[in-house]
Simulated assay, not measured.
Amino acid sequence: MQPDDRDEIRDLLKRVAVALKQGDVPFALCGGYAAYVRGAPEPDHDADFLVPAAEAERAAKVLAEAGLQVLDPPEDWLTKVVQGASVVDVLWRTCGVPVEADLIDRAEELPVLSVHMPVLQATDIVVTKLMALDEHYCDYARVLPVARALREQVDWATVRDAVAGNDFAVVFLVLLDRLGIVPGPVRAG
């Protein structure tokens, strides 16, 4: 991502957050930019927000009414907001599971590029990133810098329990343990 691209995605991220706030839509910043706010490297791609599944239609309407370019992609679990070459995904399902209000409620209000907004907790960021790993997408190189940067903010026992059914995530936790990135064993047993 070039500096101009970063400016564009940052601007769009802020505009989406402000629109959702002004529309009283519950939301939280998630993904790479949520990790960035908590100390991880800045992502080199899109930004992501979560809204409860029950608020998906209203979120899209609020964003469109705010003058943002809202796209309805073929995937049935997100809306895309576009500005130039930048994209913000507004997701209401993650890893096939509808986003529940409690996930949003756990988010912490933090300043993000000068705009205060709810940001997922570090444990939830890591869980959502690990649960996205599967046989079609298993890029540990993207998740490793996040885990390293957030390691002291994460409840690793909660992560272990939450991802126990995902073999790709479990193997990643073994890697973290073997590399000494997390305190104590994160393996089951």
Rank of each mutant, 00 (worst) to 15 (best):
F49Y: 14
K80D: 14
V143C: 05
C95R: 01
M117V: 02
E8H: 10
V127L: 06
G39L: 05
D24F: 10
Y137M: 10
P111Q: 07
V37F: 00
H45R: 12
I125W: 01
L68R: 10
V16G: 08
D167S: 15
E8I: 10
D155A: 04
I104E: 05
E100C: 04
V62C: 09
P43R: 04
L63R: 11
G23S: 14
Q121S: 03
Q121W: 06
G189E: 07
I104T: 06
D72Y: 15
F49S: 01
A162Q: 04
D4W: 12
P52K: 07
T79A: 04
A149L: 09
H45E: 08
D167G: 13
L179S: 08
G180I: 04
A101M: 09
V97M: 12
D105N: 09
V112G: 02
V51E: 09
A66M: 09
D76V: 00
H136P: 07
V51Y: 05
V37P: 00
V174D: 13
L175K: 11
K129L: 13
W156Q: 03
A64N: 11
V70G: 11
E108H: 06
D105R: 14
W92I: 01
P145L: 11
P41Y: 08
S86F: 06
T94A: 06
E55W: 15
L130C: 05
V146P: 01
T128N: 14
L120I: 03
R187V: 06
A157S: 12
R142W: 06
Q2F: 14
R187F: 02
H136D: 15
D134A: 12
